[in-house]
Design a protein around this nucleic acid. Structure first.
Lengths: 210, 210
DNA sequence: CCATTTATTGACCAGTTGTAAAATGAAGTC
DNA sequence: GACTTCATTTTACAACTGGTCAATAAATGG
């Protein structure tokens, strides 16, 4: 008793959307072939017909999440900040706000991160995403018109980008775990101050801006 | 056909140790009543006899992990650094090295963190642990003989502690996900530099090094 | 030495899981 | 109109899940 037919790509997309919905609602553990099928109002047999195996489904979902989510795939949204006066700072602030707004995506990311510990193919994708994120930060740092290069010579742009990633992900970790005891505003202010310390045009040798 | 008997506490401890072993080896998903029982060479009935339900078992395991692990429960190991000249810096370095040495514990922590998103009792414990960690950092910062108080007035000790947590957890996240592309040494060096910037006796109001 | 308690086991249950395979029918081809 | 194709559903299954419970035996106390 087959139902309506649909072109390959559309079905896959529909299933992936359903899988994302389930993952957001019930976590990666909740992503079972049957739950996804139910969400998409399809038979679970069809899900496996299109994705072969459950693992391939969750792998495909990760691809989608990394590409879609403004958090890490963010190569799209980056240009907006590239030409802003102090691009890096506003970018970080925007990211932090975005993260605070989408705690479910954050959790999903960390669930995949943990999964990556045991499944190399997943880890590769996560590592790639983090790497891309750092690279984006680096170019943002390099192109920024308002941000002068790093003061100290022993601070490489790479390491600086890694620190920025830590500041962002650490914010996510703490704010999600502990919304009451964690003061987001103070955190953001301190991050800003910290960046100024690291980036601001050398204030010590006074900038003779005659 | 009962087997050997053992005192209540000993059995619980034995089971928890087995549970930890399983969690490290197979992740939180792998922690099933039967897997734990097998690891402890007991019947699965006994595990439930002592812990009532699986959820209570994993909750008890979390308590054990938080109390045992040098990572977060660390109130024990903190005194060692309290009186060191630049306590905070050496403490952070020690933590980073410890984290790099025990990636499995890191993963376990994040798995619990993600679980906490859906189970409030778990989240409470995680949040408490993070809070305690920040507090420890704060007192370390306050008591440190070598570390002067924060320079900028708008940087509260709380926010500073939160930043420190981010630097540590962010290191864990990136180094585990991406061991090749991530340069641990440069990261550590930059953290050190960053702390100096934030903590060092005011060097910017220029020491007029004419 | 008998009675009670209780830690321990193993069998069992109902439910869920991933996956395979058969049954079904709609759309196209000759 | 018969024939093939194939997306779709249904059914089937073996493995595993958390949990219950009666049976068992070791310890305990009288």
């Amino acid at each position: 008793m087959p139902g309506e037919r649909a072109p390959e790509e559309k079905r896959r997309e529909q299933i992936l959307r359903a899988a994302y919905e389930v993952a957001i609602r019930a976590g990666l553990d909740g992503v079972t072939v049957r739950a996804v099928a139910a969400e998409a109002r399809l038979s679970h047999g069809l899900v496996l017909f299109h994705f072969g195996t459950k693992d391939q489904l969750v792998a495909a979902l990760l691809d989608r999440v990394l590409a879609t989510s403004a958090l890490l795939g963010g190569s799209d949204g980056l240009e907006r900040f590239a030409h802003a006066a102090d691009g890096l700072r506003t970018f970080l602030r925007a990211q932090i706000e975005e993260l605070a707004r989408r705690p479910h995506d954050v959790r999903l990311f960390f669930e995949y991160w943990a999964l990556g510990t045991r499944e190399p193919s997943i880890r590769a994708k996560i590592g790639e995403a983090l790497d891309g994120y750092r690279e984006a930060l680096r170019t943002l740092l390099a192109n920024g018109t308002g941000d002068t290069p790093l003061r100290a010579s022993d601070v490489t742009p790479d390491a600086f980008a890694a620190i920025a990633v830590s500041l962002i992900s650490g914010f996510a970790v703490q704010s999600v775990a502990d919304p009451e005891a964690f003061d987001m505003g103070a955190y953001a202010a301190t991050v800003k101050h910290l960046l100024e310390q690291l980036l601001a045009p050398p204030a010590s040798p006074p900038p003779i801006r005659s």
